[in-house]
Nucleic acid binder design. Structure first.
Length: 388
DNA sequence: TGGGGTTAT
DNA sequence: ATAACCC
């Protein structure tokens, strides 16, 4: 079950937008209102789903790759590949050995650095925002655009004979996907298909999953998704991560953290906003529970925040120090440890100079008002795991 | 299973 | 801080 949208995740018509060209694009709800004004209020939402996005970026960067079976590799995984590779049996998220076995001619490029993909991704979003500012991103390669207003304006300009000649094609729902956890719980209830979900007792489902999830997924099972398209705007967080077989000393951790932080600071610098919170995330080695992560976060001291726009050199050391404190808060370094992932996240982004001091807003915004200013310390205590 | 993201609790 | 979801 697709969580966010009822729109097709992988395109109705089968093989992934092959006919459409590069992008899968499907109107998600149509049928303009009858002249009488009856019927449900129609929305026009276009779902733009770019296929094998990373591979396409690579082929644009290096046109010699076009026409060859191409895979994008992260660690020992082929995370995506172009159509040539797919024809030869390569699948998304296939491991490199299997992929090479299936397709010995496969050309692999390393895609662990997401910079160019991220840049191209935002170019796509910005392009769509020219049609309507209401564009919601989902990952790097999907966008939902609410074109309702645009379509209504155009319809008003049409003559009536043109209007009657107009056909609006609908929407195809496919029955697949359910998030992993919810899928397991539904399966325990005997629900394994969309039809099962449609016909299942609402009351029992609400009791099992909570009213919010239950009502939403059951509506989705009928292809009904009234959730608004929420403009994504600029990102709420920046993070960089690296996974590896083994990292087991403080020195290694520090080196990795420095690398991650350096890239992050460049990104944040370009963005222009200032992060007010920093977080360190780790994954410990374990045979089971592979996806579980732990994190610690704390506020970024204001004197560091102020230096952020300028040269990053003077902030890197104090920030690494903070991250190492967070690290030691999570991991007892006197004991042996084995990490398989490190990630640094900068979040709680604020446009600088939004200090509304002196404006009326300053006194009207609770978080800025004097009463909660005295609560500043308790905020810090809640947010931080470090003694100051 | 990568290297990202978001929202809810 | 974590858990769940998305790609």
């Amino acid at each position: 079950m697709e969580q966010r949208r009822a729109g097709p995740a992988e395109e109705a018509g089968g093989d992934e937008a092959a006919e459409a060209g590069e992008a899968g694009c499907s109107p998600a709800a149509a049928a303009p209102e009858e002249p009488g004004g009856l019927g449900p209020p129609a929305r026009v939402i276009v779902h733009v789903d770019l296929d094998c996005f990373y591979a396409q970026v690579e082929m644009i960067s290096n046109p010699e790759l076009k026409g060859k079976p191409l895979g994008v590799q992260q660690k020992y995984l082929v995370v995506t590949c172009n159509y040539e590779a797919r024809k030869l049996g390569v699948k998304k998220l296939m491991n490199v050995r299997d992929a090479k076995e299936k397709c010995p001619q496969l050309v692999l490029v390393n895609g662990e650095d997401l910079t160019r993909y991220r840049e191209m991704s935002y170019k796509v979003t910005e392009l769509l925002e020219e049609f309507s500012p209401v564009v919601e991103r989902l990952g790097f390669d999907e966008n939902f655009v609410d074109l309702t207003e645009m379509v209504e304006k155009r319809l008003q300009q049409l003559q009536s004979d043109e209007l009657s000649a107009l056909t609006v094609s609908g929407h195809v729902y496919n029955n697949q996907c359910i998030g992993y956890k919810t899928a397991k719980r539904l399966e325990a209830l005997g629900i394994s298909s969309v039809y099962d979900l449609q016909t299942f007792s609402s009351k029992i489902l609400e009791k099992e999953l909570g009213i919010s999830v239950a009502q939403r997924i059951q509506k989705l099972s009928f292809g009904e998704d009234n959730s608004p398209v929420t403009p994504s705007g600029p990102p709420q967080s920046f993070s960089e991560e690296d996974s590896f077989k083994k990292c087991s000393s403080e020195v290694e951790v520090k080196n990795k953290i420095e690398e991650l932080l350096a890239s992050l600071l460049n990104r944040v610098c370009q963005d222009g906003r200032k992060p007010h919170t920093i977080r360190l995330i780790i994954r410990r080695y374990s045979s089971e529970n592979h996806c579980s992560r732990e994190s610690r976060q704390c506020p970024i001291p204001s004197h560091i925040i102020q230096k952020l726009g300028t040269g990053n050199c003077d902030v890197i050391t104090p920030m690494v120090d903070i991250l190492m404190k967070l690290f030691r808060n999570m991991v007892n370094v006197k004991m042996p440890f084995h990490l398989t992932l490190l990630s640094v996240c900068l979040c709680n982004l604020k446009a600088l100079n939004t200090s509304k001091k002196g404006t009326i807003d300053y006194y009207l915004t609770p978080s800025l008002s004097t009463t909660s200013r005295s609560g500043k310390r308790s905020f810090k205590m809640k947010d931080s795991h470090m003694e100051d």
